[in-house]
């Protein structure tokens, strides 16, 4: 039964992808991209990846769309029509697709328990997590403890990308200095009562849900990455409703920068502290006299670091795009 549903969703995914490429209005393409992300999230959920589905729904459909729209308002909405000879590209793409499809017949089938992926290290994670860390969500355990180096690297990629965006967008526009856009007061939906009231009603619940996802990550789907994205989405909604100025008064630039740097720093410091306490880098067992409790404490700390960095980075990126309009 579920396989029919999965096939339906996957087919929709292909249709949406083709529609995105064919759409000439970029606004339409970005909106279709949001649909694509939601379909992807549903597919992930069917494939037992609840954590990933949550991330994709919060980030792919929420934050990415807003950032793309921010960039669109600074560039152009319509794609220029160009007559190109697409024959070569089309034949290359078709040939590669057929080759890839041919190659899939060598792969293990969907859900095959004998597949090589399930033989190597995954059973160890599943059997050792209750003994070593004692939290139900194995994804969080692997993310926070067993592969904490990896996550540290990813956090620093987010950090670096955020710094890069700020470098690129905070420089003054050399071309025109006079304000060619509408003054900042008219940005946002401030004059629209209904969205404003409903938005204000929902905002605390979105942030509350974000905090729940953050601290419930050990027991259910969730964790720092998702929580950071959800809270950032809530604050972006606030910024869209109340205008950018009010949002910057609530969460100023200095706070955002402190969040971006502080979260990454917190993560690294946990590792350094474990080294000083006689363990390996990011080996939380030494944090407490009880190694299992030490592991749990370490995971909570680094998840907090991840959440703070992701939230700060996404907000800083959004405001960098939004502020660019006023130059």
């Amino acid at each position: 039964m579920i396989i029919i549903f999965a096939v339906f969703l996957l087919t929709l995914l292909v249709i949406t992808a083709i529609a995105i490429v064919r759409a000439e209005n970029l606004f339409v393409a970005v909106m279709l991209m949001a649909i694509f992300s939601l379909l992807m999230a549903a597919n992930f959920f069917i494939l037992d990846a609840a954590d990933v589905a949550l991330t994709e729904a919060a980030i792919g459909a929420g934050v990415t769309t807003v950032i793309f729209l921010g960039a669109l308002s600074l560039t152009a909405e319509n794609e220029k029509k160009v007559e190109l000879s697409r024959g070569v590209a089309m034949s290359i793409v078709t040939a590669t697709t057929l080759l890839l499809i041919y190659a899939t017949f060598e792969k293990p089938k969907l859900g095959d328990p004998e597949a090589p992926v399930h033989q190597h290290v995954a059973p160890w994670y599943l059997s050792e997590t209750p003994k070593l860390i004692d939290i139900p969500n194995v994804v969080t355990a692997v993310l926070g403890s067993f592969r904490a180096y990896d996550t540290l690297g990813e956090v620093f990629v987010v950090f670096t990308a955020c710094i890069g965006v700020l470098f690129l967008l905070s420089a003054k526009n050399p071309a025109d200095k006079q304000s060619r856009r509408t003054p900042p007061e008219s940005i946002g939906l401030r004059h629209h009562l209904i969205p404003k009231v409903v938005g204000r009603l929902l905002f605390p619940f979105i942030v509350l849900f974000g905090l729940y996802v953050q601290f419930h990550g050990e027991y259910g789907p969730g964790g720092g990455f998702q929580a950071g994205a959800i809270i950032a989405t809530g604050i972006i909604l606030f910024a869209l409703l109340e205008g950018e100025k009010t949002a910057l008064a609530a969460v100023p630039h200095s706070v955002m920068m402190a969040m971006v740097a502080g979260g990454a720093l917190l993560y690294t410091m946990v590792g350094v502290v474990t080294m000083f306490m006689g363990g390996n880098f990011l080996d939380y067992s030494v944090l407490s006299s009880n190694p299992v409790f030490g592991q749990q404490m370490g995971i909570i700390l680094i998840e907090a670091g991840v959440g703070i960095t992701v939230c700060g980075a996404l907000l800083a990126i959004f405001h960098a795009f939004a502020a660019r309009e006023n130059y």
Binding site: V28, L32, I35, L38, L39, A42
Partner: peptide, 27 residues
Amino acid sequence: GQETSVNQETDASQETSASQENNEEQS
């Protein structure tokens, strides 16, 4: 013409999101 198609897409996205959530619950 143009605006109509744009707004239709926005509409569709909401629709999908709503039905998506239903579907997830269903599964």
